[in-house]
Amino acid sequence: MTQKTIQLATAPDLVEQVYARLLDAISEGSLQPGTRLNQEELAAGFSVSRQPVLQALRLLKKDGFVEDAPGRGVQVTQLDVHWIAQVYQVRGSLDALAVRLATERGAKIDPELMQQGRGVHQTRDVQAMIQADLAFHRAIYQASGNPLIAQSIDLHWHHLKRVMGAVLQSSHQRQTVWDEHDAIANAIAAGDADEAVRLVQEHTQQASVQLTARLSEQIQNLKTGAQA
């Protein structure tokens, strides 16, 4: 991340650019939990002064992606099972609102998007699977007609991408995930808002249970390995 120079344009604001680049690297796993972030190295890597890096790190800390490191400095925040479960609670509520609004508007989810998602699921490409999953849910947010839903949930998805990436590297997305997506899309198309809400809440709950359980197992294995 910091070994080669990445030339950034002067606009938009440099703080926003540095923030976005670091956020992508953290959420996609290029910067692993516990990685120390050195201001001088980051500034050199982005070809900017330390000031936009400092401001970007402050924003990342406020949003929960960066934390104080032991001693001094900052590091990428460790994944926390309880925090992720809380993020899923918020996402579940927003997803439920989105599918209800989408259903009431007579929306339909693009069948091609569904087909592409199933195809990606077969590739076992972790980042592609995460992006396909996100594309499905973003289609629902857009179909809701309320732009505040997507804006409100975007930051939460960056947290979820972190845990999805960490977990799916060593295990697989459950086989039924795109069957669940299909059922949700069909309920929306059929105009059954109550069923769509029920299905998306069940879908989110299953994802939360599965991913937090696997994350807990990974964390425990790391602790056991460190003590051995």
Rank of each mutant, 00 (worst) to 15 (best):
A44G: 09
A166M: 07
Q175Y: 10
H181Q: 13
V81A: 14
Q7Y: 05
I26F: 03
Q32T: 10
A135V: 05
D80Y: 00
S47V: 09
S170P: 02
R198Q: 12
L8M: 11
V177F: 03
P33Q: 08
S30C: 02
E28I: 01
L113I: 10
N221E: 15
A9N: 09
R91H: 11
V167P: 00
R36E: 13
L148Q: 15
T2K: 05
R198E: 10
G71K: 07
Q115E: 15
R72F: 06
R124A: 08
K61F: 08
F46L: 10
Q131E: 14
V48Q: 07
H156Q: 12
D63E: 15
L222M: 12
Q39M: 13
Q131F: 04
L59M: 07
A139S: 14
L94S: 05
A193V: 10
E28G: 05
Q175I: 11
M129Q: 05
I6C: 05
L199S: 06
V177N: 01
D133F: 02
Q75M: 13
H172T: 11
P33M: 08
M1P: 05
S144I: 09
Q32R: 12
W83D: 09
L22R: 03
A150T: 10
Q55N: 12
H159W: 08
V197S: 00
S27M: 02
L14I: 10
L23Y: 01
M114T: 07
E112G: 07
D179C: 03
Q55L: 12
A166I: 00
K223E: 15
R100M: 15
A69Y: 02
Y19D: 08
I188E: 04
A43K: 03
A107C: 11
L79M: 14
H172G: 04
E104K: 04
S27D: 05
P111S: 13
A11H: 10
A102D: 06
Q173V: 06
V200R: 03
A228N: 10
F136Q: 00
V197I: 14
R118Q: 13
F136I: 05
A44H: 06
L94K: 00
L37S: 04
L94N: 01
L168D: 02
V197R: 05
T123R: 09
S27L: 01
I140V: 15
L222N: 10
S30Q: 09
G92A: 11
A98K: 00
M1L: 09
L22F: 02
A183R: 13
R50G: 14
R100A: 15
A135T: 04
Q75V: 10
A207F: 00
A213P: 01
I219S: 07
S144D: 06
G117K: 01
L168R: 02
T212Y: 00
R138S: 09
H181S: 09
I130C: 04
I26Q: 01
R174H: 07
V163H: 01
G225W: 08
D192S: 09
V163Q: 04
V120N: 03
G106P: 06
L37I: 12
S144C: 13
H158C: 10
K61A: 11
T176Q: 13
A11Q: 14
R72S: 15
N186A: 14
A196L: 07
R162L: 09
Y141A: 15
Y88Q: 04
Q55W: 05
G29V: 00
L113Q: 10
S49N: 14
S47C: 08
Q78W: 06
L215T: 01
A98Y: 01
T10I: 06
I188M: 04
V15W: 00
A189D: 13
V177R: 02
G225R: 13
